[in-house]
Design a protein around this nucleic acid. Structure first.
Length: 205
DNA sequence: CCTGCGATCTTCT
DNA sequence: GAAGATCGCAGGA
C-alpha cells in the first residue's frame, strides 16, 4: 500500500524456474488501496479473480487482462483488506538472455520488463503463481521479493496511475525511479472507442 | 519519432 | 454488450 509502494523501488524480484534464474530490480510500481479505491480490482468486492488480493500480505496477485496479458501484484494489506502494489517495470540485472528468449521483440534490454505485461512475460509469470508466497521462509520458491539497494527517497517520483480514470485518478499512487530507462511511458486513461457502426443497422449479409 | 487499432478473458450491467 | 491497472504491429512523418 501507500507506505510500502515507494519502498519497493530498488528491491529485487527473483524468478527461478527450470529454464534458469532472472533477477529484476524494480523501477516502477503502482499502489491500489483496497475496497475504497475506485481504481482497484477490489472496489466491487471479492470475486474469483481478485480473491488472492484479500489474502495474506506478501503473496502474489496475478491477473489476466485484455485477453492476452498477465500482471503481477504484491499483496500488502492485512488479510481481508485487499491492498496491493502492481509491479509495473524493472531492470533485468541477471538473466537477460533468458528474458530476451521470452521477449524476442524487445529492441533494447531496457524494454525487457518495461510495463506490467512485459514484466510478467519476461519472468514467465502466469496464473500458476497466483496466491503464492513471495516473502516466506522457503528460499527455493519460484518467485521471491528480496531486499536490494533501495532507491534514494529523493530519486523517487510519483504521479497519477496509468490507465486509471475518474475518481481513482486523483491520487499520485504511481511511483518510479527518476530517469531510469526501464520505466514505462505514462498513458492517461482513455476509454476505448465504441464499435458502433458495425452492428447498428442489422447483421451483415 | 508518432498515431491508430486489433487481440479476446473476466467481470459487471 | 462493454470496458478494462496492455502490447505490438502497420503506416506515416
Amino acid at each position: 500500500m501507500l507506505e510500502v509502494a515507494p519502498q519497493l523501488l530498488g528491491r529485487y524480484l527473483v524468478r527461478t524456474s527450470d529454464e534458469g534464474c532472472i533477477v529484476l530490480r524494480l523501477t516502477e510500481v503502482e499502489a491500489y488501496a483496497g475496497e475504497a479505491d475506485p481504481g482497484s480490482h477490489a472496489f466491487r468486492g471479492l470475486t474469483r479473480r481478485n480473491a488472492s488480493m484479500f489474502g495474506p500480505p506478501g503473496h502474489a496477485y496475478v491477473y489476466f487482462i485484455y485477453g492476452m496479458w498477465f500482471s503481477l501484484n504484491l499483496v500488502c494489506g492485512a488479510e481481508g483488506h485487499a491492498s496491493g502494489v502492481l509491479l509495473r517495470a524493472g531492470e533485468v540485472i541477471t538473466g537477460a538472455g533468458l528474458a530476451r528468449a521470452r521477449r524476442p521483440k524487445a529492441r533494447k534490454d531496457a524494454e525487457l520488463a518495461k510495463g506490467p505485461a512485459r514484466l510478467a512475460t519476461a519472468l514467465d509469470v502466469d496464473k500458476s503463481l497466483n496466491g503464492t508466497d513471495l516473502c516466506g521462509v522457503d528460499e527455493s520458491a519460484p518467485l521471491r521479493v528480496l531486499t536490494g539497494e533501495p532507491v534514494q527517497q529523493k530519486q523517487v517520483r510519483s504521479g497519477p496511475r496509468t490507465g486509471v480514470g475518474g475518481a481513482g485518478s486523483v491520487h499520485p499512487w504511481r511511483y518510479w525511479a527518476d530517469g531510469d530507462p526501464t520505466v514505462s511511458p505514462y498513458r492517461p486513461h482513455q476509454p476505448r472507442r465504441r464499435q458502433s457502426s458495425l452492428d447498428s443497422d442489422g447483421p451483415k449479409v
